[in-house]
């Protein structure tokens, strides 16, 4: 998986800025996507490209349980969010609905990745290659169940 980085140097990017409450009534994914990240970066929907990754600090996706948050990001084309830690419901929503990959990295890696870097994510090897900087980082491996749900393509395709 190869994509470019949109980096937000912030902790606690909450679901209210990812998709503000007033849009939770919207059922149409494409319309929802036009409001992605509106609370933090209103230009996001126009600048994001299919396949891009978001990089951010700790506790990404904290706040509400709204599945609209990973849906809005993934409909915009975001394939992975790379952060130093995640809030649990956002993490599970992303994986369960097969919307995007939530990837955990350490602080050092977070510092090294810059906005617009081109990255290649290899989940088999738990590796992130920074093509722009020619560096290789390790990502935190997925737990067993998360890896299985991802491999199955979501919670409902995952059969025990």
């Amino acid at each position: 998986m190869i994509g470019n980085v949109i980096k937000y140097e912030r902790d606690n990017i909450d679901t209210d800025v990812i998709i503000p409450g007033t849009y939770l009534k919207i059922h149409d994914y494409n319309e929802l996507a036009t409001h992605a990240m509106e609370g933090l970066d209103p230009d996001f929907p126009s600048k994001v490209k299919d396949g891009d990754f978001i990089v951010a600090g700790k506790n990404f996706g904290c706040g509400s349980s709204r599945e609209h948050a990973p849906i809005a990001l993934s409909t915009c084309g975001i394939k992975a969010v790379i952060a130093t830690s995640f809030a649990r419901i956002f993490y599970r929503n992303s994986v369960d609905g097969a919307f995007l990959l939530p990837i955990e990295i350490d602080d050092e890696t977070y510092q090294k990745i810059s906005n617009s870097d081109k990255l290649e994510i290899n989940i088999e090897k738990n590796e992130i290659k920074n093509i722009t900087k020619n560096e290789i980082y390790t990502m935190k491996p997925f737990s067993e169940i998360i890896a299985k749900i991802i491999a199955a393509g979501g919670l409902f395709k995952y059969k025990k």
């Binding site: 349980s65 599945e67 419901i89 599970r92 929503n93 369960d96 609905g97 737990s143 169940i145 979501g154 919670l155 409902f156 025990k160």
Partner: peptide, 19 residues
């Protein structure tokens, strides 16, 4: 609190896979 896929899972099975 749970996510929407887990809501569906609970509706269908009354159980959840949890760590």
């Amino acid at each position: 609190g749970i996510g929407t896929s887990e809501v569906e899972h609970t509706l269908a099975t009354q159980t959840l896979w949890l760590e």
